[in-house]
Design a protein around this nucleic acid. Sequence first.
DNA 1: TCAACACACTAAAGCGCATTAGTTGTTGGC
DNA 2: GCCAACAACTAATGCGCTTTAGTGTGTTGA
Lengths: 349, 349
Amino acid sequence: MRRTPPRRPTIKDIARRAGVSESAVSFALNGRPGVSEATRERVRRVAEQLGWQPSTAARALSGEGAATVGLVLARPARTLGVESFFLRLVSGVQETLAARRFGLLFQVVEDLDAECAVYRRWWAERRVDGLLVVDPRAEDPRPGLLDGLGLPAVVIGAPAVTAPPGAAISTVWADDTGAMASVISHLHTLGHRRITHIAGLPELAHTRRRMACLRAEAARRGLPDARSVTTDYSDAQGAEATRRALAGPRPPTAIVYDNDVMAVAGLAVAAERGLSVPGDLSVVAWDDSVLCRNTHPALTALTRDTAAFGRRAAEHLLALLDGAPPRRTQDPTPTLLHRASTAPPPCEA
Amino acid sequence: MRRTPPRRPTIKDIARRAGVSESAVSFALNGRPGVSEATRERVRRVAEQLGWQPSTAARALSGEGAATVGLVLARPARTLGVESFFLRLVSGVQETLAARRFGLLFQVVEDLDAECAVYRRWWAERRVDGLLVVDPRAEDPRPGLLDGLGLPAVVIGAPAVTAPPGAAISTVWADDTGAMASVISHLHTLGHRRITHIAGLPELAHTRRRMACLRAEAARRGLPDARSVTTDYSDAQGAEATRRALAGPRPPTAIVYDNDVMAVAGLAVAAERGLSVPGDLSVVAWDDSVLCRNTHPALTALTRDTAAFGRRAAEHLLALLDGAPPRRTQDPTPTLLHRASTAPPPCEA
DNA sequence: TCAACACACTAAAGCGCATTAGTTGTTGGC
DNA sequence: GCCAACAACTAATGCGCTTTAGTGTGTTGA
């Protein structure tokens, strides 16, 4: 039983053991010129032997950055539906960051104002070198704020942001337009003409893109009854929106839900009203998940590699931190996984 | 358009503006004696005016700790079912940490070895002051490792850990035994005598507690056919275990699932075999979630305040960091939420 | 043969803060 | 009226690292 924890080794320890100065150690370990290959190798070995790792605090203090990026999730308490997407995204983000020994500082807050406050605090505390911004919205204050603070960022989910031209802000986004088009194509081909889109939060950029695409596709294909309604992503609002849609004068024969939770809730509403899925009503879920596979019937869903999406986002951020110019990148179009919840509409429709 | 980002204010800036030395500023802002009330107040005002926040790097370097705690999630890729529990837990953890301006460093890794490696690295890099350890298991190497490194920790999910007596390690855990007892009581009262428990990973401590309690209760009540089978928490293994249980010689009339995902998968298996729930088979899910509310029938589930659980865990860790002695705390017993998936067994049973 | 110069390395400063050891100026006690 | 005690403050040091400015040695060129 060792009561005193081991002291963390510093470059001073390495210097002593290797018989050189601390500066030489620093040069050697950082690949800087100024030491012979032999010395460099010796220092490396000693460092390894001692299990040395640079103190991020000391590094940060001497101007090297904190080797940490931040991610804030503004979650208005009720909106829990997007959970599984985020954990997969974060999991991908980590993979890339860990390879470069970057840490991820993670925080959940109530709303956008709190999120901005966290950014300011992290900046003042010098905690992070850059940020991953999720859930971009129209008139988003965050890109401007972060640019003002000089913090590089990658905005996940929107092609364009409201930030000055020179800002160190990259964007990555999913091809919501293409995805929505593929869904409408699938449903239209099956024979559906009355399609309702039960969307997520109206202020989010991707919600708007999906709604815009639905309108465009409906116009192009001559589907006057296609419409979108927005919700807060919760099962409760998803169910409520479903009830209203089905109770309307010209009820839809197909519903597209913006997340898995609402789709599942919608399925329950259909059952409660005695509608068979897919016989009377077809259902599509946006973003596949373990839920979609296990409902009865299993849900036709848009699927994509969310972890890979996260990896790419992190790569873009690391590139920015390395001084690369900002980029704008579209993710591959999600593919529609045909399961048992979509079929031709009932005959009388 | 401002091209040069604002410089972060330091205590030097405050000192200049307030007309005192840097040390006086430090004393004033940290509540240390050595400055008059008047000066202290003036310094505070200037600091506020400048939007000053202490640099965590500098603080960490001068021995104050990094104001950061870590949480590593070892997720063997397939095991995604526990997601919603973790996000709620983390969300609670944050609430407590944010109030004390602590950050949460979060990482997802593949397995236990990788998790231990992360602990070592964080320690060497001086990134964290303490850790939250989840998914404790029998013969868990982590408490010993962390004690050896001198890192305080709170183990979430087990009453006891294998660590030296003096270790700065607290534990908080849910009352799995009481919860399982309430489930068995409910089912037994309804008339069930053949109960199967489809559990999670066998190496986890709470899985063992649940299994042990099932055995004890079954013995006490004289239910020879009660048994547990372990899985990896995935919907696939949950479904598979359900199929095997139902195909056996004396199939259960009630199944208890260790998470919501497997319960939902089990529901699908019952449907596929033409069994009505709860007419032919009763189903109970451990941990309520949005899934349980939206299946058909809605699932009877054990429910608890996971965010509060996270808050308490974080409080215990902060207490340890403040030098308080380690504590062992049991969470309130989860309550069984009676929904539509449990009923008396069929008559011929 | 001596200056010019590259090379391998060391010394020293600085990042922002906490802290310890001074340095004043003011009271209090006798 | 003199020294001790104290309050209010400043100067200096160190945390671990990076980086700039040296310092000494050996090699080269004219």
